[in-house]
Nucleic acid binder design. Structure first.
Lengths: 142, 142
DNA sequence: GATACATCCTCTAGCCACTAGAGGTTCAAC
DNA sequence: GTTGAACCTCTAGTGGCTAGAGGATGTATC
């Protein structure tokens, strides 16, 4: 039986985050000691590990909820899980593309900075001038 | 003189966002009509464009505040603006690296899915199995 | 001048995924 | 029995917006 602190350590989660997951019903209510402290078993460890790994892969808590639900029904066709993963992959690819464009622009900014006064600063200039190029209005998306 | 709605259209910002920027003092309080509606001039259009472009480049509102401040003091040395841009560039590069790792893993998951039942689903399996590899405990960072 | 109606106003609350802190209790070791 | 780390609940805050209620204003048309 694990205390919440030990479960936190084993999964690389903060204690408050575990309680938060319980509050939003992503984690089940665990057993308690007589004094009211939470105690966890292996099932909870597995579930939380799954959640954390999915979070590291960028899945939203809602997507994780779906995935957990799918895992609970082993006889259903798996194309739903596949669809969630594909959706996630697409999102990741979009973010990468967007960030690579940013990198290019930032690189240019940084390399053109002459180190003079701010009046001549390319960084500020680029930021100011590109103000005109706001054709792409969907934010940084990352 | 622009209404808030027209300023919003010109800069690809939502009306509420402009009012939010005013509230947090990133945008100045504009002039008003007799009836109390906001009216904007070119200075505000420039400033908001600068803000939006910086946001698209991934700068935080705090960083933008600094940049705007630097722009207001043209005789100061520009290494501060440069430092902000460099910091931003580093962050973007870290995000890209992280996302590329995710892409690899998601790709593997998706390509190994056989389309059978969830019981055999590679997507769920990978998520479950990699639960063990939680050595990297710093979140998705993106 | 009246009317319609799009746009504006303020204010509050919500989103995601946590995170922090106050103020108090329990557990395990010594 | 005492210490002190870890636990408890509860509330509020983070960033960067976004949504909606309920009402006022501005402008075009008749």
């Amino acid at each position: 039986m694990l205390t919440i602190g030990n479960l936190a350590k084993k999964t690389g989660t903060k204690v408050q985050t575990i309680r938060y997951y319980e509050q939003i019903e992503l984690m089940p209510e665990p057993g308690r000691t007589e004094g009211g402290q939470r105690r966890y078993g292996d099932a909870e460890l597995d579930r939380l590990s799954f959640i954390r790994h999915s979070r590291q892969l960028g899945f939203s808590l809602d997507a994780i909820r779906e995935l957990l639900d799918l895992g609970d029904h082993p006889n259903r066709p798996c194309h739903e899980a596949d669809a969630i993963a594909r959706r996630q992959l697409k999102q990741v690819e979009r973010r990468i593309a967007r960030l690579e464009a940013l990198r290019t622009e930032l690189n240019r900014m940084v390399h053109e900075c002459s180190g003079g006064r701010t009046a001549d600063c390319r960084v500020l200039e680029v930021l100011r001038d590109h103000a005109a190029c706001l054709t792409d209005h969907d934010g940084i998306g990352a």
